[in-house]
């Protein structure tokens, strides 16, 4: 689904944040990308989503070079959840948040309503559909952002530190939600330093240190 081949990247042209990373992500599985702060996790995630262009090496998404794809094209294959969900919420109501971009793409109005209804139900947001997204709680914002990303029906999701500022209860809820998506066949890359959270979910754990992959193995302790 996503393939990084010998990818290196630097923000300022001198210091390499990511060095020679090879990563093959298949549809369907859950992969965790772990490592300490500053190890380059977020950068690898943004490279895999085609948001950043590699300095050297290549990135392929769905068999095509990410270089030639617009962000909109990538978005129909790969959904990306930012660490701060409030950066990807725009609309005046939760329902509009799910609908407005499909409307711009001239998707049929009935179809939009059908998809939005399904999402609101799946993410337990029905009672909040007329609420202003900025007044929602952190967990609700995150669910809404995730639902909005999924409106585009990507087959793969990249989640950047989804557990930051979530308490144990919200973490458990998120975990359940992601398992359900997994059962529906959505592949995932979860970027996190929360070893307990990813330990429960991921089938595969990729360890990043100083911009290089130091370990890539099957997760023996997966409990779900």
């Amino acid at each position: 689904m996503i393939e990084l081949v010998d990818v290196s990247f630097s923000y300022d042209g001198s210091q390499q944040v990511v060095r020679g990373v090879d990563l093959h992500l298949t549809c369907g599985g859950i992969t965790a990308l772990v490592g300490p702060n500053g190890s380059g996790k977020t950068t690898v995630g943004k490279l895999a989503a085609g948001i950043l262009k590699p300095g050297s090496g290549r990135v392929e998404i769905g068999g095509r070079s990410a270089d030639g794809m617009s962000l909109a094209e990538i978005g129909s294959e790969v959904g990306y959840l930012f660490q701060q969900p409030q950066r990807q919420l725009f609309a005046p109501t939760a329902r509009e948040e799910l609908s407005f971009l499909l409307r711009v793409q001239r998707v049929d109005e009935d179809e939009i309503r059908r998809r939005a209804d399904a999402m609101l139900k799946q993410f337990d947001l029905q009672h909040l559909q007329d609420s202003f997204p900025f007044v929602l709680s952190r967990g609700e914002k995150q669910r809404l952002a995730l639902a909005a990303v999924l409106m585009n029906r990507p087959q793969f999701l990249i989640l950047d530190e989804p557990t930051t500022a979530l308490d144990v209860k919200r973490k458990a809820e998120l975990s359940k939600l992601l398992m359900r998506l997994h059962d529906e066949g959505v592949g995932m890359l979860i970027i996190s330093h929360d070893s307990r959270f990813v330990g429960d979910l991921a089938e595969r754990v990729v360890q990043l240190r100083g911009g290089e992959i130091t370990d890539d193995c099957r997760n023996q302790h997966r409990s779900v």
Binding site: L89, L101, A148
Partner: peptide, 30 residues
């Protein structure tokens, strides 16, 4: 913010002007 909205399927340069203004007003919110 701009990246996020495009990744959700928005082709900014193909959107008619009226709708584009609405989208820009949405982008100001976050």
């Amino acid at each position: 913010v701009l990246t996020a909205v495009q990744l959700r399927g928005l082709k900014l340069d193909e959107v008619p002007l009226g709708q584009r203004l609405q989208i820009y007003s949405y982008l100001l919110m976050p």
